[in-house]
C-alpha cells in the first residue's frame, strides 16, 4: 500500500504526523510529506488509514502501485 499527500490541499493540521509518525512528516511550515516514498508496510496500514480519515483537508490519498 502507498499514500500520497497533496501539497496543494495540505494546510498543516499535523493530524497525520500525530497519528502515524512512522508514515508522515510535517515541516516547519506545516506541509506534510509521506516518508519512504509513501510506501506503507503492512504493520502500519491501520495507522496510515487513521491519518487519511482524520485529515480535515482531505489531502491524503491511497495510491495503487
Amino acid at each position: 500500500m502507498r499514500v500520497k499527500v497533496n501539497a496543494d490541499k495540505c494546510e498543516g493540521h499535523n493530524r497525520c504526523c500525530a497519528l502515524a509518525p512512522e508514515v508522515f512528516d510535517v515541516d516547519d511550515y506545516g506541509t506534510a510529506t509521506a516518508l519512504n516514498d509513501g510506501v506503507v508496510p503492512p504493520e502500519l496500514e491501520e495507522k496510515a488509514k487513521l491519518a487519511v480519515q482524520n485529515c480535515p483537508e482531505y489531502a491524503i490519498e491511497f495510491v495503487k502501485d
Binding site: E11, L50, Q53, N54, C55, P56, E57
Partner: peptide, 12 residues
C-alpha cells in the same frame, strides 16, 4: 476513529 473536525478552521 474518524474525526475530520474543523475546530481550528480549515483552508488557508
Amino acid at each position: 476513529e474518524k474525526n475530520r473536525h474543523i475546530a481550528f478552521g480549515i483552508g488557508p
